[in-house]
Design a protein around this nucleic acid. Structure first.
Lengths: 340, 340
DNA sequence: GCGCCTCATTTAAACGTGTAAATGAAGAGT
DNA sequence: ACTCTTCATTTACACGTTTAAATGAGGCGC
């Protein structure tokens, strides 16, 4: 009757110790796999712990060890399909390392929002984080939260990113191979490293071999600005190169709206190879960057840094490849579109 | 020289207390806004804390209070566009309440994976969670992790969901209003409450007024099974009703592949109104469920439950509405498609 | 002028865990 | 038979916080 300390509380290590007739320390040793106890005692303790439904108190554990076994994953948006693909890979790999993953949507408003996300993660005791950042300076704010940056290099920090520049070159080479000459470019914000690199790689390889009729900077929002729309409507190019698949998608949308057929009237290329790009509705020729690999390598790097805070900084560059699909076709000589 | 206890550690409440010349308790009172100290001391302590760059240790706090100010958000997938929309709303609302959000991708393999996610969240000390669950029994596993379920009612649990059945009726009514008669149905897994309800609502309202020529169950994976593909190719219906926008998207893809024009040759309707459905490329007529509202209401419910664990259980049903877009058109009498 | 109440502040005891150091029993070597 | 080593187990303290209870300094009424 006297409901003492055993009132339907969740059991602590002390309860397990008492029930098993050993000390708290022994239970702790068993549960941390430190191989300090006799096999029989080990088995016994485990059994008792299971019977009581014991599970370690994360907070106490974190308090003592300074480790929470949680990592953060900061993404500029969950609404674009690209980032969830990375986030999913991060989560899976992290779980393999025994870490849970805390996904945060930093909301693509640069700088302060990102710094806030990092601070918030740090406050909540994550051990480290993986981030796709729009503003480099956000990272420097928080002291000593181990961070691995995805999609761009950053001084003093581990990073993993695709060979954006090489991808840009691939796009140009492929366009040339198909016989195109007059090209339209929908590039992303030049303040973003990845957009800039892709753009420069393309320009570099196109040099003297492709006419870039127009080159329009498109913001991150998923709708085409009117000047881009107008440019597409002029039909003065045979191929539109988009700096990412999301933009390519809006371009395809716009073209469809204007009843310009793809690829018969105009070819379209993207960059990323997000999962939907392969669907028949889009069927987009694009440069594939290994999104999953990006996430997995980032986790491996982060875990390594947690184990060895003073290890040398690594920057991993991953190769990209061209994926041929139905949104492009060859352009016979002399068949070039002209401006009206 | 003698690097004592002040070696470049992150400062604790003790450091702040010493620097401010007060006790730990006073600092704690100040930082928890308990109004127990004089304004001067209050200001002084805050200033010192800011100067030292002090931030509370989450683990210790959680250990003492049993609260972490973190909630979980379990989604079956981050790759489908619907769930990120909900997750984003959850996160924003949670932040307004002072909670951080821990998004977890439970990976749509039913049951065990979901139970694991819940257990994991509990282990990591979240205060509660919001979940879209495929398997109802996952919820009952974990004892006493406050849970708000989205998308379906569940006994003994707070929940928020759209009026799926009413939405199904809306679809039927609209189809009838457009003059369609011969209908194809792409329904979702009948094991899911939402799919089932939408399906039943549609059938109910279609009764005697629409001919359901075929009715095919499509799994969650984003590709159309071959029987569905074949059915579309038979062209024996004038309208295809899909149980969600993702399926509608695959249907649009398939139709395009078969050069069946939408809406001229066949109309298509969806359900959800995910963000992309409005884009010109899809331009999908659909039933809108208020995804953001779903998330926000769920958070409000969860916070209320945390404050008052014994409050009465609420089940909130949100209204849906039809959004007319370009994937549907009227069907003149006698113009019905026939089976070959 | 003395006791009493008020209220800002401090003292000190938890919270549940990890782990260094202490304990002590058993076996080996002389 | 006695000491020394080994090693499984326990004791006991620390982690950084919250918070109930103790402290003590003024201010007030008698």
């Amino acid at each position: 009757m006297a409901a003492e300390k055993s009132g339907e509380r969740t059991p602590t290590i002390k309860d397990v110790a008492k029930a098993a007739g050993v000390s708290q320390a022994t239970v702790s040793y068993v549960l941390n796999n430190l191989n300090k106890v006799t096999p029989e005692v080990d088995a016994h303790v485990r059994r008792v712990a299971r019977e009581l439904g014991y599970s370690r108190n994360r907070a106490a554990r974190a308090l003592k060890t300074g480790r929470n076994n949680v990592i953060g994953c900061i993404m500029p948006s969950l609404l674009s399909p690209v980032f969830p693909e990375i986030a999913q890979a991060v989560q899976q790999r992290a779980e393999e390392h025994g870490f849970a993953t805390f996904v945060i949507d930093s909301g693509l408003q640069t700088a302060t929002r990102e710094a806030e996300a990092i601070r918030m993660l740090a406050d909540h005791g994550v051990d480290g984080a993986i981030a796709v950042l729009a503003s480099p300076r956000a990272a420097s704010d928080r002291r000593a939260l181990p961070l691995v940056v995805i999609d761009q290099p950053m001084d003093g920090m581990d990073s993993v990113y695709a060979d954006h520049r090489g991808g840009g070159r691939l796009l140009a080479d492929y366009a040339i191979g198909l016989g195109h000459r007059r090209i339209g470019l929908l590039s992303g914000l030049q303040s973003l490293y990845s957009s800039r690199e892709r753009h420069e790689g393309f320009i570099e390889a196109a040099q003297g071999r492709l006419d870039i009729v127009w080159d329009i900077e498109v913001p991150l929002v998923p709708s085409l600005p009117s000047d881009a729309f107008d440019a597409l409507g002029r039909r003065d190019v045979s191929l539109v190169v988009c700096v990412n698949d999301l933009i390519a998608m809006t371009a395809l949308s716009a073209l469809r709206q204007m009843r310009i057929r793809v690829p018969e009237d105009m070819s379209v290329m993207g960059f990323d190879d997000m999962q939907w790009s392969g669907w028949p509705l889009l069927n987009l020729t694009t440069v594939r960057q290994p999104l999953g690999q990006l996430g997995r390598d980032a986790v491996d790097l982060l875990v390594r840094r947690l184990d060895a805070p003073d290890a040398e900084i690594s920057n991993i560059t991953l190769p990209v490849s061209l994926v041929e699909r139905g949104s492009t076709q060859t352009q016979a000589k002399g068949e070039e579109s002209r401006s009206a």
